[in-house]
Structures are given as structure tokens and as C-alpha cells.
Design a binder for these strands. Structure first.
Length: 519
RNA sequence: GGCCCUGUCGUCUAGGGGCCUAGGACACUGGCCUUUCACGCCGGUAACACGGGUUCGAAUCCCGUCAGGGUCACCA
């Protein structure tokens, strides 16, 4: 049997980090088993702007390398892959259920239902609909209709015995049927509800394994009932542990951003990203740009595989040591059996560390290709990129080493090479330049710089050390001052690299300009 | 509240009766390296929720308690 899994997002306008984890696990399992991964859009009820709301989801998945065998953009033998376009299949299923007595038309009003619910609550009993307004015969229908009532279709759930499922993650789970409500599957206007649609679509698309988040575990009985009543074979279920808030076990949600920002790690990652976004002219609205949403990472310059690798470890592990996997390794190692069953909280710092690891592995040329677009977006280099600019950036990347953690970091490390007059950080000036004796020292090194040849790191270091020695001060005293004079900041690549990249003339010009600020 | 799920360092996890004085990673932290920052290297702090069983032996099995979470829509 060919394994077929699916990810069925609804077009909400953004791709949630928890959703990606679910998509990834479905994808990994399908790939591992040589099966198919299907993308279906559950757009029931979201009528407007589907295209617009879908785009971030599709592009996000593509960016992460989660490719689908059937679905939007690629089509497939079971088209359409939009739930809203399969409404006739859903209605047909409802009719079948009605005909077989597994569902009934219900004419109760909301008020009447509420009353029953309240009564049950008052009596301290779990609510179970009395079916007082259920129409089981044509006569019932005629009578209720005559009263001016409208009907919905409800499931006629069993009221004895139990459903047992063998969940791939949780093992045996049992649900007493009598605890299940007679859920509505079709509205008065004839449109169908999610659970019905989902079960019918999964069957039509020949989905063999339903891998989804734990929040759906309690929905399983009603879905199983629909499937069984329709004569379908039940898919295998795997309910993944929830992706929880940082440092908590509560489900991660986009809505509670303000709260997450109180977490120092989360805040740090969010602010770092926002800084980059601002420089590339992105409107960093927290609603659409934050560490819970995948686009955040793409814009800031994370590597897609770093996200995948990190997310794979959220609820799954291979052994007691291995943390980094190539794409092929992950695919071949992935099994449902090794999925954990307890919630896993999202740790942006750990993601950061994984990102650091993969960035580390990139060659200078790969980094250059990856980072140049950020400089273009920030208008620090022209488009198309002039060869000299690319050469400069290449040297900056080389000199920056492991300091560049995400693509957008190039902005902070390359800007002072690319602008004519870098802004001088006030605090840096105060700390490193405005001290007594600095001016004299800096002037001496400037003089030495006139004759350093070649103007490369090693000779530059030699001459600086000579100046320092003659003056009888510490190396740091001069280095820090020159760094601020030349770059405007206290942090950056090695100073001698900075000077060499800048060249003699620009270095001297900047030092001269900074001289009046020295103490 | 009913039903269901879950409980190992702050976090992700390994472990599934003796290999556990509980291992790895992130974070934190001490030190080294060093012109800043980062990297790297060496070290440290830190966990089996609790209580009963079963057993020669329990983090591992059973029961209970407690705690956390999910879900209970004419949302998906």
C-alpha cells in the first residue's frame, strides 16, 4: 500500500510555525515511505481573498523545501484540491448518511438547544441532545416545516459502546460513544462543516495516514464515526504533541505575541529580526512579522533547512546524540514510532543555534550569494550589483567569519564599508575616542598608515604594534579608538581586516574626520 | 465541569526493570584564546512531579494523588 499523507491548511494569510511542523512530519513520513504528500486547502467558510491568503502558505512551504505531489499549482488525479470546490461530494455524503440513518435532520432552534444544555448543566450531567426536534420520518419533516422551522443535519451518534483507536503516537485510546455529541455536519443553507468535509476529502484523496496535532485527538471519534458510517476504512492516526509556547506547555498561538515578548529569548530574536526588517524597508507589523510566523525567518535570512532541522526535533528524535541531519538523512531516519507524546515548547534560542550551525557550514561564495540581496533591499548596493561592490562584500564576509548568524546580519557588518560617511555611535565615541591622550595616539598611527605597504592586515598590525610600543600604551587603547574612528561602532570584523578592506585613502580620511572628537 | 492527552535538567531530548552516582544538545555560568564582537577549546550548575505497591533490584511496570495541557461551535 502506498502511503499518502496530507497537510490541509486553511488560507489564513500566514504560515504558523506549528503548522509547518505538522506539514514537515507528514512530508517526512511520506518521503520516508516512498509515498505521496498531498496539499489540500481547507477553505470551507473562508470565502474571500483565498488566493491572497494562500500565497504566504504556498511560498512558505516551497521555501522550506516541503514539496507536494498533488495540490495547488501541481494538480493531480484527485483534483480539485480546494475543499470549497468539493462541496457536491460533501453533500452527497450527507445524503448517504441521512439515508442510512447515521444522520438526521434536526429542527431545534439555538434557544431550545441552549435550554437543554443549561438544564443538563444544572443537573450536573453531561449534555446530550434529547433529539426532541429530530425528524426521523417525512411526517416529522412536514410538521416541523409547517411550524416555520429550519433544519440542519446532525450525526446520530451511538449512545453505547466505545471507539478504540490505535494511535501511532499515543497507542490505544478509547472514547465512550455516549460522550459524543450529535454534531452538526450540514448547515441550514446546505453547506457542510469541516469534520464532514475533511473525512470525505481524506477518503477521496486516498489518504492512508492522518498525521496532525494533538488538538484533533478529541475530534477523532466524530470523524471516525462519519468514516465508518460511510463505509470507509479508517486511516491510521498519529497525533503529534503540541508545539507549545516558549517555556510553557500551552499551545503556541499567534494571538499571544505580547505575552511571548516577555520571554527574554523570544524578545531578543524578535527584536533582532525587526531591526533587519526595518533596514530592508519591510513594514514589520507584529501581526504579520514575528517569530511565530515562517515569513519572519525568511525575511530575516534564516536558512530554510535550519528551520526544518530544528522543527524535526520538536517532538521527534533519532537517538541520544544526533541533532543535525541532511535532508536525505532526515528522510531516511524518520519514523512515527520515535515521535514523542508530550508537548514540546518552541525555543527560539535553540533554533538560533541550529541556524548558526548551518550558516557556519556555508562557503564564502554561498554566503555572498545569499546575502547580497539583503544589501540591495537596504539600498546599500545598487541593483544590478556592481562587481566592485560584490568584491568588497565578499571580503567583508570573509573577514566577518562566524559573526554573521543570519543573512540580514550582513547589513550591520557591511554598511560602514559601503557608505561614504558611517554614522558614529555616540556611546562608542565617548567610550573609545573622547579619552585624554587618544588624539595623539591616533594621529601617530595615521602617520604610520601613510607608509604601510602593502596595505594588508599583517603589515597593518605590525605598524600598529610599533606605534603602541613607542607610546608605551596597551594595544587595546589604540585598536579600539581606530575601530570607532573608522567604523563608527565597537563591534565588527577584525580591525586590520576593516582597514585593509577600506583601503588607505578612505581609512585615513575617516581617521582624520574623527580626530577632532578625540580627547 | 465532562471526556481525552501528558509529566526526566530552565528548554529540546536519550532511556522502556540492573549498563543510571541518569547521557547529549540549547540556554546559563567559570576559565582559556583574543584588538571588539563572534567562533573555538576546557570546566561547572541543573532533572526522573508526589505517594503507595510489584520486584533481590524501579526513571523504567501497576494503582492513586497532584500538576499541566487539549477539546467540548450551524470555526477550521
Amino acid at each position: 500500500m502506498t502511503v499518502r499523507t496530507r497537510f490541509a491548511p486553511s488560507p489564513t494569510g500566514y504560515l504558523h510555525i506549528g503548522g509547518v511542523r505538522t506539514a514537515l512530519f507528514n512530508w517526512l513520513f511520506a518521503r520516508q515511505r516512498g509515498g505521496q504528500f498531498i496539499l489540500r486547502i481547507d477553505d470551507t467558510d473562508v470565502a474571500r481573498n483565498v488566493d491572497e491568503a494562500l500565497e504566504p502558505i504556498l511560498s512558505g512551504l516551497k521555501w522550506l523545501g516541503i514539496d507536494w505531489d498533488e495540490g495547488p499549482g501541481v494538480g493531480g488525479p484527485h483534483a480539485p484540491y480546494f475543499q470549497s470546490q468539493r462541496a457536491d461530494r460533501h453533500r452527497a455524503a450527507v445524503d448517504t448518511l441521512l439515508a442510512s440513518g447515521h444522520a438526521y435532520r434536526d429542527f431545534a432552534t439555538t434557544a431550545e438547544l441552549d435550554e437543554e444544555r443549561k438544564a443538563a448543566q444544572a443537573a450536573g450531567k453531561p449534555f446530550l441532545y434529547s433529539r426532541a426536534f429530530a425528524a426521523f420520518t417525512e411526517a416529522d419533516v412536514a410538521r416541523f416545516t409547517a411550524e416555520g422551522r429550519q433544519s440542519v443535519v446532525r450525526l446520530k451518534m451511538p449512545r453505547e459502546s466505545a471507539l478504540v483507536i490505535d494511535d501511532a503516537v499515543r497507542g490505544r485510546v478509547e472514547f465512550a460513544w455516549e460522550r459524543e455529541q450529535d454534531h452538526v455536519i450540514q448547515r441550514a443553507d446546505g453547506s457542510c462543516l469541516y469534520h464532514l468535509a475533511s473525512v470525505v476529502d481524506d477518503h477521496d484523496l486516498e489518504i492512508t495516514h492522518v498525521i496532525r496535532a494533538e488538538e484533533h485527538l478529541s475530534n477523532t471519534p466524530r470523524q471516525a464515526f462519519i468514516a465508518l458510517s460511510l463505509g470507509y476504512e479508517l486511516p491510521a492516526y498519529a497525533h503529534l504533541p503540541l508545539v507549545a509556547e516558549p517555556g510553557s506547555r500551552t499551545k503556541l498561538s499567534k494571538r499571544k505575541l505580547a505575552q511571548y515578548l516577555k520571554n527574554p529569548d523570544f524578545k531578543q530574536v524578535a527584536e533582532h529580526g525587526t531591526r533587519i526588517a526595518e533596514r530592508i524597508g519591510l513594514t514589520a507589523d507584529a501581526e504579520t512579522f514575528n517569530p511565530v510566523i515562517v515569513d519572519f525567518y525568511r525575511e530575516v535570512g534564516y536558512l530554510p533547512w535550519a528551520i526544518d532541522n530544528y522543527l524535526a526535533l520538536l517532538g521527534w528524535s533519532y537517538d541520544d546524540k544526533t541533532e543535525f541531519f541532511s535532508r536525505d538523512e532526515l528522510v531516511s531516519h524518520f519514523t512515527l514510532e520515535r515521535i514523542n507524546s508530550s508537548p514540546a515548547s518552541f525555543d527560539p534560542k535553540k533554533l538560533w543555534a541550529v541556524q548558526d550551525h548551518y550558516m557556519h557550514g556555508l562557503s564564502v561564495d554561498e554566503k555572498l550569494a545569499f546575502m547580497l540581496p539583503f544589501l540591495v533591499k537596504a539600498k546599500l548596493v545598487a541593483d544590478p550589483v556592481p562587481p566592485e561592490a560584490a568584491a568588497t562584500v565578499r571580503r567583508v564576509i570573509e573577514a566577518s567569519g562566524d559573526r554573521l548568524k543570519v543573512g540580514g546580519d550582513i547589513l550591520a557588518y557591511a554598511d560602514f564599508f559601503l557608505v561614504d560617511e558611517p554614522a558614529l555611535d555616540d556611546a562608542a565615541v565617548k567610550q573609545r575616542l573622547a579619552k585624554p591622550g587618544v588624539r595623539d595616539l591616533v594621529a601617530k598611527y595615521a602617520a604610520a598608515l601613510q607608509t604601510v605597504d602593502p596595505f594588508e592586515p599583517a603589515p597593518l598590525e605590525e605598524s600598529l604594534k610599533r606605534v603602541v610600543e613607542e607610546a608605551g600604551v596597551k594595544v587595546g587603547d589604540l585598536v579600539h579608538a581606530i575601530r570607532v574612528a573608522v567604523t563608527g561602532k565597537t563591534v565588527g570584523p577584525g580591525l586590520y581586516d576593516c582597514l585593509a578592506i577600506l583601503g588607505r585613502n578612505r581609512s585615513l580620511a575617516r581617521i582624520e574626520k574623527a580626530l577632532p572628537l578625540c580627547g
